Every structure is written in C-alpha cells, then in structure tokens.
Amino acid sequence: MRTAHAAMSFDADPKHVEHARRVTAAVLGKAGVRDREVVATVQLLVSEIVTNAIVHGDANSVSFQLTCDAVGEVLIEVDDHSSGAPEVREAGPDDEGGRGMQLVSYFARDWGRKGTCTWCTVPVGSAAG
C-alpha cells in the first residue's frame, strides 16, 4: 500500500457526488487498492456521507477529503459547515431515504462527528481481508 490523498470543496449540489466517487476510485488506485468490492464499498460510503452533507447541511458548500495510509486504512472526511449531526435511523420499508448512515455504521470500522465534519474509517489493505 502507498499513501494517497485528495481534498476538494464544491457547491452543495447533488451533481458533485459522482465526482467525489470518481476521485475516490482514483485515490484508491494510486494507493494500490485493486479489490473492486473494497473500492465499491468506499465509494458507497463517500456517496452516502457527501449526499447527507448536501441534503441535510445548511451551508452552500461541502469539503471532502480522502486519505489512504500506507497500512491500508482509508479516512473519509466530509465537512458540511453546519452544526447538525447525522443520525442512524430506522427507515420504513416504503421510505425512499434515511438509510445512508445505517450503511456507514455497518460498513465503516468507525465513524463520528468532529465539529462540523463527519468522518469514517474503512480498512482496505490486508486488514480488510
């Protein structure tokens, strides 16, 4: 594994979620992550946290950082510049949304909120299995 990092800020517009997913794949590729399932899982978490920031944050912009360290752990950080915190909630079977933080809670090794930034960690190296 090699260390790789990306950081960007963008308008709080859903069209930027796909760009964040592409950046994620590029960073993981640069770090040497080749497992497609692992890449897909990290992209899913990025999508969910970025979307949550865009939909529920009250700022005009979102900051996104992704770091893959040499031991194979990814740190995803998304700052929505707002005081609210994401919640893991139980969505009903007919609800169209409300499952994003459940997915983060399930797939991430750890996650939380520091200030206005939601973060999570994901093992992607040999520790990922």
Rank of each mutant, 00 (worst) to 15 (best):
K15C: 09
A127W: 07
K30F: 04
R99S: 04
A127V: 10
V124Q: 09
E37K: 15
P14Q: 10
D35E: 14
K15S: 14
D35K: 07
T51N: 05
G129H: 07
E37S: 15
A40S: 14
A127P: 05
S47E: 09
I49L: 11
E90Q: 09
E90N: 10
I49Q: 07
A128F: 05
H5L: 09
N60K: 13
L103T: 10
A85S: 12
E77V: 00
C120E: 08
E77C: 01
C68W: 06
T51C: 00
T24V: 05
T51K: 01
A108V: 01
S126P: 14
V38M: 12
V78C: 14
M1L: 12
A20C: 15
S82R: 05
V104S: 07
M1D: 04
W119H: 14
V71D: 12
G72C: 10
E96Q: 06
L75W: 06
R22I: 08
V62Q: 09
Q43W: 01
A59F: 00
S9P: 00
M8N: 13
Y106L: 15
V62P: 08
A25D: 08
F107K: 02
E87M: 11
K15N: 07
S47G: 12
P123K: 14
D80V: 08
N52L: 02
D35S: 11
M1C: 10
A53Q: 02
Q102K: 10
K30V: 10
R89L: 05
G112S: 02
D95C: 01
D79C: 05
G72L: 11
V55I: 06
G29P: 03
F107D: 01
D35V: 10
T116R: 13
T41R: 13
S83A: 13
R89F: 01
S105Y: 06
L75Y: 02
Q102L: 12
A12I: 00
V27D: 12
T41H: 04
V104N: 04
A128S: 14
A128P: 05
V88K: 00
D11P: 15
I49M: 15
D35L: 00
V71N: 07
E48C: 08
G115A: 09
V46T: 03
L75R: 15
S82N: 07
R99G: 06
P86K: 02
W111A: 04
S61A: 15
S47W: 06
R21C: 08
S47Q: 06
D110I: 04
G112W: 00
A128R: 09
V38R: 12
C68Q: 11
V38H: 07
C117F: 00
D94A: 05
D79W: 01
M101N: 09
S9T: 14
V17Y: 01
C117A: 12
C120Y: 04
L45P: 02
L45Q: 00
D69S: 05
A20I: 09
S63E: 15
M1H: 06
A128V: 02
Y106F: 15
V17A: 11
H5I: 13
